[in-house]
Nucleic acid binder design. Structure first.
Lengths: 123, 123
DNA sequence: GTAAGCACTATACTAAAGTATACTGGTATA
DNA sequence: TATACCAGTATACTTTAGTATAGTGCTTAC
């Protein structure tokens, strides 16, 4: 039995704990902008204005707010270089990078589900 | 190469499509009550009041609203039996059931991430 | 010296999500 | 006849999330 399976059996043994663990993951992704932010950081570290330019329609206020939350959640690491003027870089933490595995399974389910719903609507 | 891998490569070839697909999955789970509702339905079909009793603090209004959305999203099937009085049963669709694979990966990531964050905070 | 870029913050607002509470119309039970 | 269960709906309200817009203090380029 793999480590994944062992951990899964453990958390599934208590249904409220299972829901809580799923909820933790969901909360890390909550809101309109977290996913786009994580998406752009998947391509490597970026500066504040770079991220801003990558995401259409995001305001500086929202980007700042969401980056703070992501940092607090241990998803993003913020590094300040004391050049003049200061430059600030954001990158995904190790945890942030492993989230891609979850995102991948969400992407595939999302596509399959969309197809399934479309077929069902044709009937 | 597995079907999963093929579909994943396909959707990953376009980063905005990838984000959209992940977002679709996220939207199906959005809000405070969808996950608890899906959670209770994982144990089999249930009637309205049964679900209500399973989920502490949910109001009838919210349960009704969320069940409608889940039905619209093709996650839940609603069946009305014309007994007297009518009884109504809710159950997960096929798509709804396959979501458990995604939820499993979210649960395991959630647990691992929580541990990682706790260790980082001790330093 | 003024315009523009950097990394933000402040204030005020609107929109969406969620809560509280009461009610509907039917049936079955005491 | 009163009470309670069923499957919800209606109305009013509060809380949270997101938007719009302007401004901070710094530096470099024209």
């Amino acid at each position: 039995m793999s480590t994944f399976e062992k951990e899964l059996n453990n958390v599934k043994s208590c249904s409220t704990e299972y829901i809580l663990a799923v909820n933790d993951t969901l909360n890390v992704l909550s809101g309109k902008w977290k996913l786009p932010i994580i998406g752009t950081l998947l391509f490597g570290k970026k500066r504040f204005r770079e991220i801003e330019r990558c995401i259409p329609n995001i305001t500086a206020r929202m980007l700042s707010k969401e980056l703070k939350e992501l940092e607090l959640n241990g998803m993003v690491k913020r590094t300040v270089y004391d050049s003049i003027p200061v430059s600030v870089e954001y990158e995904l933490t190790k945890s942030g990078k492993t989230l891609t595995l979850v995102l991948d399974s969400m992407a595939v389910w999302g596509l399959r589900h969309r197809k399934a719903v479309m077929i069902a609507e044709k009937l």
